[in-house]
Computed example of a mutant assay.
Amino acid sequence: MKSQKYAVIFIALQLIKPVSASTTSFEIAVKNFEANQLESASGQFTALQSEPQWQMASQFYLARIALKQQQFDSALALLEATKLKDEDAVKPAQYHYWLGVTNAKLASNSSWFKAPGYASTAKSHFEQAVKLAPEFMLARKGLFRYYLRAPGISGGSIKKAKQQIDAVRAFSELDAALLQLELAQHEDDKAFILDSAEQLFEFKDSPEALYQAGLAFQQTQNYEKAFLAFRLAYSFLPSGHLSATSHYTQLAAYQFSKTAVLAEQHLPEAIKAMQAYLTMPIEEGMPEKSWAQFRLGQLYWLSGDKAQAKRLFDEIKHAQQEQQLVKALKQFLK
Rank of each mutant, 00 (worst) to 15 (best):
E322F: 02
S303L: 03
K289D: 04
H318F: 12
A292D: 01
K289Q: 13
K306A: 04
A319S: 15
W291C: 01
D314A: 12
Q323Y: 12
M280H: 11
K317R: 15
Q320S: 10
Q293C: 09
Y300H: 14
V326H: 07
Q293L: 11
R311Y: 13
L325M: 09
M286P: 04
P287S: 00
L329K: 01
R295N: 11
A309K: 05
E283K: 15
Q293F: 00
H318G: 10
Y300P: 02
W291D: 03
R311H: 15
T279C: 07
Y300R: 06
A328E: 06
L296Y: 06
Q293A: 03
A309G: 06
A309C: 03
Q323C: 04
E283C: 04
Q308R: 14
Q323N: 13
G285R: 06
V326L: 15
A328R: 07
L302N: 00
L278N: 05
L329P: 08
A309L: 01
E288I: 06
P287F: 07
L296K: 03
M286N: 07
Q323D: 13
T279S: 15
E288P: 12
M280N: 12
V326Q: 14
R311C: 04
A307S: 13
P287D: 10
F313M: 11
S290A: 12
S290I: 14
L329S: 05
E283A: 12
G297Y: 00
A307F: 08
Q298A: 02
A319W: 08
E288M: 13
M280F: 08
L302R: 03
W301P: 05
L278Q: 10
Q324P: 02
Q320C: 03
A319E: 15
A307L: 14
A309D: 06
K310E: 15
I316P: 05
W301K: 00
L312G: 08
K327P: 02
K317V: 06
F294P: 03
L302Q: 10
K327C: 01
K306W: 11
Q323L: 11
P281S: 00
A319G: 13
K310V: 10
K310A: 13
L302V: 01
Q320L: 13
L278W: 07
E284S: 13
K310G: 01
E283H: 14
K310L: 14
L329V: 09
Q320R: 14
L302T: 05
R311A: 15
L329C: 09
E315G: 09
E284W: 11
P287M: 09
Q293G: 06
I282P: 00
E322V: 00
I282Q: 10
E283D: 09
D314R: 11
A328P: 04
Y300I: 04
P281Y: 00
I282S: 00
Q323S: 11
Y277E: 03
Q308M: 11
G285N: 07
S303Y: 08
P287Q: 10
L325C: 06
R311T: 09
F313P: 05
M286S: 06
A309F: 05
I282G: 00
W301T: 02
L278A: 00
Q321N: 12
A328C: 04
L299G: 02
K310R: 13
